[in-house]
């Protein structure tokens, strides 16, 4: 068993119904600030997961297609080398692209260099209106103004499971011991999370897959998110 982890997400596009439950769960778990209408118009909305919607075909034979996009946790991440303060940093232990908020000075270079546009800048100090301020997750910091943030693959859950006697404080956790907030919320099991360096994990058994594809793979970013192409399994008459 390899010592390091390679946290991986599989998104089965045939199962995704575009319900946005993952987006809501992510907001709740990760204290993601809520932007108002005016800010969203300015392109300053913050959602660590974005559900892209595509129409396929022509009316009346038309289908809606959904593509959840979040930080791809690149193995060769474009956001990392451009950060002057090493706030965007690669964790070899987890195979994750870490964002250290305390280091971030808000140059936004990382967001500009990210081909997936999944990094978000806090243009103002976050405000959580009643009753949302009552449900902030104490395991996750609330980012202040001027800080870049993005999906972390729920690193707080990974650490929480590992740093328990049951997790044995070892580098590996058993498959299924932990889920990210989005995989937990997904009603159709379209999101599957696990450790690719664990040969017994569900993601390891699902990959490689005939339907697999990674976003903008030709850029050489080595994303850790695998999409299983839709339209080949249960769609159509």
């Amino acid at each position: 068993m390899a010592e390091n982890n390679k946290w991986t997400m599989i998104v089965d596009l045939d199962k995704c119904t575009g319900c946005n439950a993952c987006v809501v769960a992510c907001h709740a778990e990760n204290n993601v600030p809520i932007a108002n209408e005016e800010e969203v118009i300015k392109g300053r909305g913050l959602h660590w997961i974005r559900i892209e919607r595509y129409w396929e075909g022509e009316y009346p034979d038309i289908k809606a297609r959904f593509l959840p996009v979040f930080c791809q946790q690149c193995g060769n991440a474009p956001c990392e080398p451009v950060c002057p303060t090493y706030a965007s940093y690669h964790s070899d232990e987890e195979g994750l692209n870490g964002q250290i908020y305390a280091r971030c000075v808000g140059t936004r270079y990382c967001g500009n260099n990210c081909p997936y546009k999944v990094r978000f800048f806090n243009w103002r100090a976050p405000e959580f209106d009643e009753p949302l301020n009552q449900q902030l997750n104490p395991d996750v910091p609330v980012r202040g103004a001027g800080v870049m943030e993005k999906c972390t693959f729920c690193i707080q859950r990974i650490q929480r499971v590992r740093q328990t006697p049951e997790g044995d404080y070892g580098p590996m956790t058993r498959d299924g011991d932990l889920q990210t907030a989005c995989t937990q919320a997904c009603p159709s099991d379209a999101l599957i999370f696990g450790n690719l360096n664990d040969p017994e994990s569900r993601v390891s058994r699902m990959l490689p897959n005939d339907r697999q594809a990674r976003l903008l793979e030709h850029l050489g970013t080595e994303p850790a998110v695998y999409y299983l192409k839709g339209g080949t399994t249960n769609v159509g008459e």
Partner: peptide, 12 residues
């Protein structure tokens, strides 16, 4: 040491 130097151990 390497694992304990990972930023993500304490920073999230």
């Amino acid at each position: 040491k390497d694992a304990l130097y990972d930023c993500l151990i304490c920073h999230r």
